Simulated assay, not measured.
Amino acid sequence: MSRLSKRERATAAAALLELRTHGIDPSEVTDTAAQLIGMGTPDGKAYQRAFGKLLEARPSLRAPLQRIETLIELSDIPTVARYNQALTNYVATGDEGHLRSIAATVVADMAQLAQETGDAGFAEGLPDAAPEPEAAPPVGEPARAGWNPRGFRPGEAGEAQAPAQPGG
């Protein structure tokens, strides 16, 4: 996933985590994507196709994965950077504390999306009262060391920001 944009990486990582919550081995997607990348398909397209193939066999996952995509697509860059950091650290360590560090933001954003879109699926499994997200750092102060205020590491600001489309 190294050549994915920040949004693509966050979308793919969150979608792969969602698969695990449904008892599905994420390697169904990652192995297919790796094969496609090995044949020269750009990383973003490879993951789109791999998720598309999975959804052909499991159409019931389409709505949850599209909600993840919408959440990431509508998140600002510092939030996407926080999601990436937490998901990457969780995958590397298995420490759920990394997921808890973004939980309040995810819950609040999903509750807001449920209200704005009228799609109750955004609110499924959320607590009755969404906790307040952590305060964002003031403009000009990076959300994490080594990142600029827009959520990029130096030298990566030109990276494409097109969101991944696990649905197809």
Rank of each mutant, 00 (worst) to 15 (best):
P26H: 13
P26L: 03
P26M: 06
S27N: 13
S27W: 07
S27F: 15
S27G: 01
E28P: 01
E28Y: 05
E28L: 00
V29E: 00
T30Q: 15
T30I: 12
D31R: 04
T32C: 09
A33T: 09
A34T: 13
A34E: 15
Q35P: 14
L36D: 14
G38Q: 06
G38A: 07
M39G: 11
G40W: 13
G40S: 04
G40N: 05
G40T: 12
G40R: 11
T41H: 12
T41D: 07
D43N: 14
D43F: 09
D43I: 05
D43R: 09
G44C: 08
G44S: 05
K45V: 11
K45I: 12
A46T: 10
Y47S: 05
Y47I: 11
Y47W: 11
Y47A: 10
Y47T: 07
Q48D: 15
Q48W: 13
Q48T: 02
Q48Y: 01
Q48M: 09
R49L: 05
A50V: 07
A50H: 09
A50K: 00
F51M: 06
F51I: 09
G52H: 13
K53H: 10
K53T: 08
L54M: 15
L55F: 12
E56N: 11
E56G: 04
E56T: 02
A57P: 02
A57R: 01
R58K: 06
R58V: 09
S60E: 08
S60V: 02
L61A: 14
L61T: 03
L61R: 07
R62N: 09
R62V: 04
A63I: 15
A63Q: 13
A63W: 07
P64Y: 09
P64H: 01
Q66T: 06
Q66K: 14
R67W: 08
R67M: 13
R67E: 07
I68A: 03
I68Y: 01
I68W: 00
E69T: 15
E69D: 07
E69K: 08
L71G: 06
L71C: 15
I72R: 00
I72G: 00
I72V: 06
L74W: 10
L74H: 10
L74R: 07
L74Q: 02
L74F: 06
S75D: 11
S75Y: 00
I77M: 15
I77V: 10
I77D: 11
I77N: 12
P78T: 04
T79D: 04
T79H: 05
A81E: 15
A81Q: 09
A81P: 00
Y83K: 00
Y83R: 02
N84A: 10
Q85D: 10
Q85H: 12
Q85I: 06
Q85S: 11
A86S: 07
